[in-house]
């Protein structure tokens, strides 16, 4: 009977062996809060606004103080500027202990790009899937810029590609000391700065590149740029 009770309690909830962790995301541009229709500048001096900003996060793992890498069961999150709820990611099942870093993928791993119809955050109704060349759009930024040479001066950056020479998933590791304890849910506050998309190792000039919507080299370089967009929020 005792054994049965133990089995039962394990099934109901793993009390006191693991805990959830909350990651919050704040979107900024050049260290300013992201606002619709507000003008920002790239390092190259182009003015731009942002109308759409979303990205997939997956493959979360946590690095303990003893350098142990704790991988969580696969989960996929679509963080979107227009959805407050999406900016709070709750991860469950992290063993109690002291941690020093969090690691995750920007994008969706290759397996989930080629295993058919998905649900939840990966549901294609969110417009983050290419229908003509299968694969998820890992991250999307749309807006406007006077420098854009297309008729409506729009900016459309849909970054994706999961195979061959053009793989756009990027791994991020952020140092963030925190403690997972039984009685308290740990919260890690992160910032994503969208200006990094255009200001990194490959500077983007909107007069030359006002959009990119296919797997390819420009997308790969923008993914390199935005792999540095996250930081831990300073209090």
């Amino acid at each position: 009977m005792n054994r049965l009770f133990l089995f039962f309690s394990l099934l109901i909830g793993n009390t006191a062996v693991s805990q959830s962790v909350i990651l919050t995301f704040t979107h900024e541009v050049n260290h300013q809060p992201m606002r619709a229709n507000k003008a920002y500048y790239t390092a190259q001096g182009d003015t731009f606004t942002i109308t759409k900003f979303k990205y997939y996060l997956s493959n979360f793992s946590f690095i303990s103080e003893t350098e142990e890498n704790i991988r969580l069961s696969p989960e996929y999150f679509l963080v979107s500027e227009d959805s407050a709820a999406s900016k709070k990611v709750v991860l469950t099942g992290l063993p109690l202990g002291r941690y020093k870093a969090v690691s995750f993928m920007i994008g969706v791993d290759s397996i989930m790009n080629c295993t058919g119809a998905q649900s939840g955050a990966l549901d294609p109704i969110y417009g983050m899937f290419w229908t003509w060349n299968s694969g998820y759009i890992m991250a999307k930024l749309e807006g406007t810029s006077p420098a854009s040479r297309v008729p409506d001066h729009s900016l459309q950056f849909h970054i994706g590609g999961y195979r061959g020479a053009h793989q756009s998933q990027r791994m991020v590791r952020l140092n963030a000391p925190f403690v997972v304890a039984a009685e308290k849910t740990a919260v890690i506050n992160l910032v994503a700065d969208a200006a990094t998309w255009f200001n990194g190792a490959t500077p983007i000039r909107f007069s030359e590149t006002s959009g990119f919507m296919t797997p390819g080299t420009i997308g790969d370089r923008i993914a390199d740029n935005y792999s540095h967009m996250f930081s831990v929020k300073s209090k």
């Binding site: 080629c114 058919g116 003509w132 299968s134 694969g135």
Partner: peptide, 8 residues
């Protein structure tokens, strides 16, 4: 050959 699965 751009589509990689019958489901989608």
């Amino acid at each position: 050959g751009g589509v990689n699965h019958l489901d989608i």
